[in-house]
């Protein structure tokens, strides 16, 4: 079996538990992400989602295990892995535009000022920020606008892997919807590989090609990989009518409600813990000769 683009191999994270012992957050977690895939990870608080994210970003070191991207082991932060943090992490003394050029300058230090500014404006426009707004400081922007700037900064850098850590967690439901659409749009235009943490089941179904489900911690594991068998381009108002929507949603709800607890706390005994692939497809595929609808359709 060929190695996936991003391969997480036997990742284990332990922390001191405060009583001289160790607390294992997750053990031997093993999974992969293909190039161009949009993968969401769902799980309860404390299962180690953010820890996995930080390890992928290179901001934290795992206790053991490796992360390989494009066949090379990942160590330390890198411009190849862009991060969008939950709290936006914009530099408050810079305008929206300067926050984006800050990233591009780091990525393409040899580009001219004009090129850098043009690129920043282009990506800000992709997330709906145009005109005078781009010259405002983050404190003068709403939460939604700040997260748009943060997303623009990440995409403008063309990272090989984009990590989104609950990017919409702090936003109200309406803003969240708009920015999800913008995220889908910009993702469709750039063919980024995206790994995203979320708490929101509907958001995950709308955005992801595949959802990884984590059991509760400690000793959490990535138990299932659920394929989202709803063709793209997706639209929040239309996908609910797709025959696969509610079966998938129910499966996820059941997992988070019951099975995440039942499956929790099982030591791995040193074995790799691959997630089990789950495919729910209610559409009769007979007429298409067993061919599944394409998971990704670019454009639109």
């Amino acid at each position: 079996m060929p190695k996936p683009f991003l391969s997480i191999e036997q990742l284990t994270q332990q922390f001191p538990d405060g009583n001289g012992g160790t607390m294992t957050v997750f053990e031997n977690a093993t999974f992969g992400i293909e190039k161009g895939e949009f993968v969401c990870i769902l799980g309860h608080s404390g299962c180690g989602k953010s820890t996995i994210m930080n390890i992928l970003a290179g901001l934290a070191e795992p206790t053991s295990g490796v992360v390989k991207m494009d066949g090379f082991e990942v160590s330390g932060p890198s411009l190849d892995r862009g991060v969008v943090f939950q709290n936006y992490s914009l530099l408050p003394w810079l305008s929206a535009l300067k926050n984006v050029t800050f990233g591009i300058k780091a990525r393409y230090p040899l580009n001219s000022k004009q090129e850098i500014t043009d690129q920043a404006l282009e990506y800000l426009a992709m997330v709906g920020l145009e005109g005078d707004v781009v010259h405002r400081k983050p404190s003068q922007l709403s939460g939604g606008m700040r997260q748009r700037v943060s997303i623009a900064r990440a995409f403008a850098n063309h990272p090989k892997l984009l990590l989104l850590d609950e990017p919409f967690g702090a936003l109200d439901a309406l803003t969240r919807g708009t920015i999800q659409d913008e995220l889908l749009k910009i993702w469709g235009q750039t063919e980024q590989t995206v790994f995203m943490i979320t708490h929101d089941i509907d958001e995950a179904i709308l955005l992801a090609d595949r959802i990884l489900l984590m059991t509760n911690g400690p000793l959490a594991r990535v138990a299932e990989s659920v394929e989202i068998t709803i063709p793209r381009p997706r639209n929040r108002t239309e996908i609910v009518d797709h025959p696969n929507y509610y079966p998938i949603r129910n499966h996820l709800v059941q997992f988070l409600g019951h099975r995440s607890k039942e499956l929790a706390g099982q030591p791995s005994n040193g074995e790799m813990q691959h997630p089990e692939t789950v495919r729910i497809d209610k559409i009769k595929t007979d007429e298409a000769g067993g061919e599944t609808p394409p998971l990704r359709s670019v454009g639109g």
Partner: peptide, 26 residues
């Protein structure tokens, strides 16, 4: 968070000090 922004953008320690820490602490 701001230091992490510098780290994920692979800024050198000197560049981090000048472009992130100095304005933040100014």
């Amino acid at each position: 968070d701001w230091v992490n922004v510098a780290r994920t953008h692979e800024l050198s320690p000197l560049k981090t000090a000048i472009t992130v820490i100095l304005p933040a602490a100014a």
